[in-house]
Amino acid sequence: MAVAPTRSRKSPRRQKLEAAVNYPLDWLEERSGLIGAVRYFLFRKVPGDTNWFHTLGSATLTAFLVQALTGAILAMYYQPHPATAYQSINHITNDVTLGWLVRGMHKWGASVFIILMFFHMARVFLFGAYKYPRELNWIVGVMLLAVGMLEGFTGYLLPWDQTAYWATVVGINLNGTAPILGPFLADFLRGGAEIGNDTLSRFYSLHMLLIPGLIFALIGLHLYLVVRLGVSSPPWSREAAGGGDYPAAPPSTNGRSGLTQPTARSGWRRNGGES
């Protein structure tokens, strides 16, 4: 893909500069298609009447990213062993520079994340946005809610204080009441007969490897479906949204099918890129 602009009013110096800027982009696009994918993501059309309610999803994502970032920093100082966990939390909160801020953001970010998940879910429910063809994305969202609350449960033990310890004792015992699987699940979570060393390292691993990995994967799927199916318009929208009596849209002059299109593969510049 050569770069030369066809109608060249630009100075040679400007041409050289553009070529220098475009070369790495073209190089990347030719080998991966990533530039086209990003362009498709950024310049895809969303209904003209999306509003502030539609920001709850990305707000939830932001809260999760705050958790991921602050969690990674906390993991640098936290020591998941019953003998040292409480001390390390104390150290993070009281000694480490801005440690209190990182831990405070992680502690309160968890609540904000849960609240935003519920708000986002309420918005989707009230807008009827779970309906065809977005059923699958609703289910992925429900899974994210369940897994997110599990993340809250496993994280609650880690400070290894009385609040954490006894909440987990009861939480695990409650799991144990489930028919058939319950006792096995309780034994698995406890990692033995008593809550102790094995329980803490187990919860730590679940909290910072397994469950966040699952959440990242589910968020990826969730976003893929959002981009593929398009952002739902509000129920009162003219964009073929809700009722049976929506006004017909003017016929599309675009020859291409209006149905879902995969990522633009035809070169990022032809698809609304520069000149």
Binding site: F41, V46, P47, Y132, A240, A241, T253, N254, G258
Partner: peptide, 16 residues
Amino acid sequence: QFTQYKQDVKSRGKSF
């Protein structure tokens, strides 16, 4: 209806 929605958004929607 979904096809209609896609067309509407394509012709009248705004860029993300």
